[in-house]
Design a protein around this nucleic acid. Structure first.
Lengths: 228, 228
DNA sequence: GAAAAACAATAGTATTACTATCACATTAGA
DNA sequence: TCTAATGTGATAGTAATACTATTGTTTTTC
C-alpha cells in the first residue's frame, strides 16, 4: 500500500489551526515532534512548553499555529482519519463486491499499519497509538456540541459515512448501519488498547496477527446477516 | 427493579480511597455533590476546590477522602459497576436460559436506568452520564498499567467476566467472548453519547426507547451464532 | 473528662495554560 | 536593493489548577 501517489498532501480543515503547519518547516516539525511527544507523555502531561523545547523553538511560536493543545489533538486525529479515508478509497476502488470492500474497510480500521513514505513528517504508527489512546478525549468533552458545529469531527464522520454506505449496499434492510460502523471503529481502538493494558477485557492477543480483523469482520458480516 | 434489598451497601475496594466516604455524612455528601458537579462541569473543569465550596466544607477535607480527582473518578466508576453487577446477579438469578440471561445483561449494560432508592446519596442517572462521558478517561492514561496492578479496574473486569461466562455457556466454540462483551459495553456508552452529540455516527435516536438494547442484543446473538 | 480524630481555615508551592510585548530575522514585493 | 510585511524567539506576566502544610477548633471515642 506504500507510495500510492508521491504527490499528494493530506489536508485538514482550516478552522482547526491558526496557521497551516504544512506550509513551513517549523510547522511540520511541530506536527512531527508533537506526535512523538504526545505518544510518549500522554495528552494530559503533554504541554506546548515541552513541545517548544523539543523542537528548539519557542512556546509562543507553537501558539501561533494552534490555539491550544486540544486543537492540536483535533488536527492530528483529523489528519489520521483523512489519511485512512484516502487509503480506503484507493483500496476499494475497482472492487465490485460490496462484501469484499467491507472487509477491506474493516482491515483498514483495525489493522496494524506501517509508516507511509509519502508523508515523511508524520509517524503514522505513533499517530495510531495517539488515536487509540487519546481520540476519545477529543470528543468526550462538555464542548462537544460546539466543536461539532465547527466541523471538527467531519473527517471521522465522513470516513464512517463511507463505510456505512457499503453496509447499506450489502443489506438495505439492516436498521443500524451507522451504529455498527462506529461500534466497529471504536472497538478497533479499545481492543488494541485492552490487548496491551487490560488483557482480561479482550481475547485479542498482541502477539497473534489478524485476530482483531477476524473478530470485527466476523462480527460485522454476521450482524448484517451475510454469510462469508 | 427498585428496592430489592433495603439493607445493602455497595462497597468499593479500600485501595481506591484514603478514608471511606460511606462512613460519614461529609463523605456521603462528597459522593452526592461530587457526582452532580462532575456531571455538570465535566472531568477536566471539575476541581476539589469547587466541590468543597459546593458541600460547604474545605478543600483539605476532600483531600482526606481521595488522593486526587482521578481517584474520585475511579471510585465513582467502580461504585457504578459494582451496582450494575448487583443488579445483574439479581436479575439473572433463577433464569435457566442462558440466552435470556444474556439479553437481561445487555439490557442492564445499555438500558436507561432509574434512581435506586436503596442508595439515596447516589444519583444513579447522573452517575451513568459520568460513566458514559468520563469512564474512558479513567483508563486511557499513561498510568493504566500501574492502576491495573493496583486493582482499580477490577469492578469493571468482574462484571464483564460474568457476561463473558454467559456467552461461553451459550456457545463454547465462539472464540472472542471477552472481546464481544467489552465491545458491547463500550458501545452502550458511545452510542448513547453519539445519540446526544454526534448523531451522524449512530442510528440510535434519543427519543425512541429500546433501540440501543435491540441493536446490541441483535448484534450479540448474531455474532455468537444464535437465533432469537 | 481526656485523648484522638476529624474538620475548617488559611497560607503556601509548583505547574500548567495562555497572553502580551519587543527585538530580531526572514520573506515578499516593488 | 530596499522597504514593508510576516514570522520567530525570548521573556515577562496573569490566572487557574493541583496539592501540601500548619494551626486552631470541633467532634467523637474511650
Amino acid at each position: 500500500m506504500e507510495n500510492l501517489l508521491a504527490n499528494i498532501q493530506i489536508k485538514v480543515d482550516e478552522k482547526v489551526f491558526l496557521k497551516d503547519p504544512e506550509t513551513s518547516e517549523i510547522g511540520k516539525n511541530i506536527l512531527r515532534q508533537g506526535i512523538l511527544l504526545m505518544d510518549e507523555l500522554g495528552f494530559e502531561s503533554f504541554t506546548f512548553k515541552k513541545l517548544a523545547e523539543q523542537i528548539g523553538s519557542s512556546e509562543a511560536t507553537v501558539y501561533r499555529y494552534f490555539e491550544n493543545k486540544h486543537m492540536l489533538l483535533i488536527y492530528l486525529i483529523s489528519w489520521y482519519w483523512n489519511w485512512q479515508e484516502y487509503r480506503l478509497v484507493f483500496s476499494t476502488t475497482n472492487i465490485p463486491s460490496a462484501v469484499e470492500r467491507l472487509k477491506i474497510a474493516i482491515r483498514i480500521l483495525s489493522g496494524t499499519i506501517v509508516n507511509d513514505a509519502n508523508f515523511s513528517h508524520i509517524d503514522e504508527v505513533s499517530l495510531q497509538r495517539i488515536v487509540v489512546a487519546e481520540s476519545a478525549k477529543s470528543f468526550l468533552t462538555k464542548e462537544v456540541d460546539a466543536d461539532n458545529r465547527e466541523g471538527f469531527f467531519q473527517s471521522y464522520k465522513r470516513l464512517c459515512g463511507r463505510v456505512t454506505d457499503i453496509i447499506i449496499e450489502i443489506n438495505p434492510d439492516y436498521p443500524y448501519p451507522a451504529s455498527l460502523v462506529s461500534t466497529i471503529s471504536e472497538s478497533a481502538h479499545y481492543q488494541r488498547f485492552f490487548a496491551c493494558h487490560l488483557p482480561s477485557l479482550t481475547n485479542i492477543s498482541e502477539k497473534v496477527e489478524g485476530q482483531l480483523e477476524e473478530f470485527l469482520i466476523d462480527l460485522a458480516l454476521k450482524t448484517i446477516s451475510v454469510s462469508e
